[in-house]
């Protein structure tokens, strides 16, 4: 099957990558990822002295033979990882040509879904603008992957952005902690966004912010005197581009710096994603 946002060349590029959440995850299926629960798996974790009541099957007999002491081998319990993706589908994400920011984000999300599903990890998807337009609960099957890919293709830019609202509404839906990936242009109040992220952080989610921006948003093009039309509100402002260009760049830089700083303080990983850069490079940010 051919999908718009998961092309053959993308699959080839993704072959060398693997979805490896940085933090430990918890899962109800035994999988490939370390769990915070100590259990039986092939990945050695540590030795600890034996205390009465411990399972004798986990005593390391070799150590006992060499040192005449009882030590237990402990292993990380392997589980399947959960990845929750929020893709901003507001009107502002429709900016950019020939590919919009939403297209860029959809390519990224499609690739991520492929990576996650390939390793039989679970992935959920939220498509939102000022509300959650579509929610696909976590799944790890190929069918689930196809569902997500089709949903991405049928996802035009919508209304205004309200990431905070989407996060608040989805908090109850995400029962399993895991990796939270936010793909947005973040034209929203940064304080409100991080306020909405606080419960997720509290629950131990590993959060990645992918700030998708078109180059023209970072550096206003030379348009002379122009009527700027807001994609979300249809509001209009007449401005002389050369006059405001530097101030705009400065304001945008301040905004990015602010987001980066807020993210750093909360141990949230922030990544600026320029649409003129290949989205494949972004997956490295997910690898610890």
């Amino acid at each position: 099957m051919k999908f718009k946002y998961l092309r053959a060349e993308d699959i080839r590029a993704l072959q060398r990558l693997a979805f490896e959440p940085r933090s430990l995850v918890e899962g109800h299926l035994a999988g490939r990822h370390r769990s915070t629960a100590i259990g039986s798996s092939t990945e050695f974790r540590d030795y600890r002295p034996y205390v009465p009541g411990d399972d004798l099957r986990r005593v390391d007999w070799r150590v006992l033979a060499r040192t005449d002491r009882f030590y237990l081998r402990t292993h990380n319990q392997e589980t399947n990882a959960a990845c929750h993706v929020f893709l901003d589908s507001s009107a502002s994400m429709g900016f950019g040509a020939p590919a919009s920011k939403l297209d860029y984000g959809s390519f990224f999300v499609a690739g991520l879904a492929y990576l996650v599903a390939r390793r039989h990890d679970a992935i959920s998807l939220h498509l939102f603008d000022d509300a959650v337009r579509a929610f696909f609960p976590a799944g790890s099957t190929t069918r689930h992957l196809h569902t997500l890919l089709r949903a991405l293709e049928a996802n035009p830019p919508g209304a205004r952005t309200s990431l905070a609202v989407a996060l608040q509404h989805s908090l109850g839906r995400l029962r399993r902690r895991g990796t939270l990936v936010l793909v947005s242009d973040f034209f929203d109040d940064a304080g409100a966004i991080f306020d909405a992220l606080n419960p997720y952080l509290h629950r131990g989610f590993e959060i990645h912010l992918f700030h998708v921006l078109d180059p023209e948003e970072l550096q206003l093009p030379e348009r002379g005197l122009a009527t700027f039309v807001d994609l979300e509100t249809n509001g209009r402002v007449v401005a002389h581009t050369p006059s405001i260009r530097k101030l705009y760049e400065q304001a945008m830089a301040d905004h990015i710096r602010n987001l980066r700083e807020l993210a750093r303080r909360r141990h949230v990983r922030y990544t600026l994603a320029r649409t003129d850069a290949p989205h494949i490079a972004l997956y490295d940010r997910l690898i610890p």
């Binding site: 242009d185 034209f187 002379g224 039309v229």
Partner: peptide
């Protein structure tokens, strides 16, 4: 002046 559709006018307005 020619119209230019832009993602967000928040900064420009300010």
């Amino acid at each position: 002046p020619p119209a230019y559709r832009f993602s967000s006018l928040e900064f420009i307005r300010r």
